[in-house]
């Protein structure tokens, strides 16, 4: 299985590492922003200011959905290696 992807992988073998760590960093950032939104909204609503709580909820949900969408790009090298191996075995059998 030699294609452009494979060549890329060989040129930069730790690409999945970088990607995993990048995604984890973004998720931590998302979480920190959500903690801030939650405390700010709670504080304001306990103070009788209800203008903040709905925008905070919407922002927090959007951040969550963005984080969940990011999981799609989470590398799965073991599953990938298994798939490659299966492919190799299949082509050997042919």
């Amino acid at each position: 299985m030699s294609n452009f992807r494979e060549a890329q992988r060989q040129a930069h073998p730790t690409k999945t590492n970088t990607l995993s760590l990048g995604i984890i960093c973004v998720l931590i950032l998302v979480l920190v922003m959500q903690v801030w939104l939650l405390t700010a909204a709670l504080n304001e609503s306990l103070d009788g200011n209800n203008a903040v709580k709905w925008p905070a909820f919407i922002a927090s949900s959007v951040l969550f959905l963005a984080g969940a969408a990011l999981l799609r790009y989470l590398p799965d090298p073991i599953r990938h290696a298994r798939r490659v191996r299966k492919h190799e075995e299949a082509s050997r059998r042919l």
Partner: peptide
Amino acid sequence: AKFLCLLSGGMAVGSGWVA
């Protein structure tokens, strides 16, 4: 990473609860 995403969902639910 999936666990972080779960926590993030919890935060969104918490904000909904405040609302």
